[in-house]
Design a protein around this nucleic acid. Structure first.
Lengths: 241, 241
DNA sequence: GGATGGTCTGACCAGTAGTCATGGACAATA
DNA sequence: TATTGTCCATGACTACTGGTCAGACCATCC
């Protein structure tokens, strides 16, 4: 990116640089909120500048275009999320699907505290131009911010995931279903009507999660995970109406 | 809007109505192409009007806003697609997953002939505002244009789908995975780089489809599709195709 | 012919992303 | 302290778009 590291100027250009960096960060902060609250197209660069107490032109001087500003906000939002394997050691020891469950349960709670980054990610995934989406995708492919690949490898190494299918494909499958399910789950309270199923009662959330995990395990789990002599768990069959 | 249907005037208001309808149809036709080629935001209402040889104002008179114009285009695109069960009787008899395979194979070919409706659908799903997406979603929920519910019921009735999970949830799961896989598959040649996996060789398409079907069948298929005939099948390890 | 109602028009408006010449703040130098 | 040069903030400005509307236009109906 920059060549600041080659020169070891102590304070001069360094502080200037830090100053500029700090300003960029402030702008991105405000931009995230605006994008999250208004959506990409409704958000006004002018409003962000006003809130920051700076001129609109400054924003463009720093980011060049609204698209790139959003991209910066998107990247910050996504990189602020933890990776798949950033779970308590205890959960990690319980394995792959326990980790998936952990995140599903956790995300619902986390969301209530701070939904801004999630909303920005959502907008990046569904609510911008296809051109922007292409750049977003490139970022996701190159950076793998959630460390999905390592997570799948983790599952395979533990023998929890099937090996008769290309590992990348398993990762994709997890990615697809996880993302859509999470969106359905989260937007249910955050933005009702945005995704398919509209009626779900919130108190059924945990049951839905277990249902999802069952399907997911069937799909990508290793063939016989429950073969050995477990003490016959009485599978409650009350699911059917 | 108008109360023409209450009066049974034969030709007068009827022909006017037809005329108006025809014009709307022409506009939607052109709009579809423009949206498909340029994307939602890059497409200019002015350009569409110019191509049609009419004034921009007329477009707005008929549709009120660009959003509603796109919505009309989207609806036409989606309803132009066949439903899940609109397959040759032969395929239908082969069952649920054979039908899924049929559509996966078929869509790739169909796309090359006419990619406009597909592109419009894609833009509706990923490349507009969240507000528009909400309306799109409402349409999909209310109309179920692909007859997904009936298709899933078909699979359940045939005993090909598992019954221990809510039927709606199975439908959602199929919807999610199908859509993402299809997008990945189709955009691979149509728009490389739009979705996650970028490297796939086109000649591997059929293999990928079989891989997908295997995962899908594991996820939502009935537990033991190959149990009955043999006396004591020893837990077949190999997933049957 | 004249009245009537809907349709088309294009000039017009409001509002936004993006530009740029200007000027100021600040650090390095003398 | 004065000078100089670099970078950045500024806000007036442009280009262009979606959207509006009063009136022209036109087909139908008395």
């Amino acid at each position: 990116m920059s060549s600041s590291l080659t020169h070891s100027q102590p304070s001069a250009s360094e502080s200037v640089r830090a100053r500029s960096e700090a300003k960029r960060a402030r702008i991105v902060d405000v931009a995230m909120r605006h994008f999250a609250e208004q959506g990409y197209h409704q958000a006004r660069v002018q409003d962000m500048a006003a809130e920051l107490g700076i001129a609109k032109g400054s924003v463009f001087q720093h980011f060049g275009s609204k698209e790139r500003l959003f991209l910066a906000a998107y990247k910050r939002a996504v990189t602020s999320f933890p990776g798949w394997l950033d779970v308590p050691g205890e959960t990690r020891e319980q394995g792959f699907f326990a980790t998936v469950r952990y995140w599903l349960l956790r995300t619902v709670d986390t969301l209530r505290e701070d939904w801004v980054p999630y909303r920005v990610a959502l907008i990046g995934n569904y609510g911008t131009d296809l051109g922007l989406k292409r750049q977003i995708n490139r970022f996701l492919v190159n950076e793998d911010p959630y460390r999905l690949a390592a997570f799948v490898k983790f599952g395979v190494d533990r023998g929890e995931l099937r090996r008769d299918v290309d590992q990348d494909f398993v990762a994709s499958f997890l990615d697809w279903t996880w993302e859509r399910f999470q969106d359905a789950l989260l937007t249910e309270e955050l933005d009702p009507g945005l995704f398919r199923r509209h009626g779900g009662r919130p108190e059924r959330t945990e049951a839905r999660i277990e249902e999802f995990l069952r399907l997911l395990r069937s799909a990508i789990g290793a063939p016989q995970p429950l073969a050995p002599p477990k003490a016959a768990p009485k599978k409650a069959r009350q699911a059917r109406r």
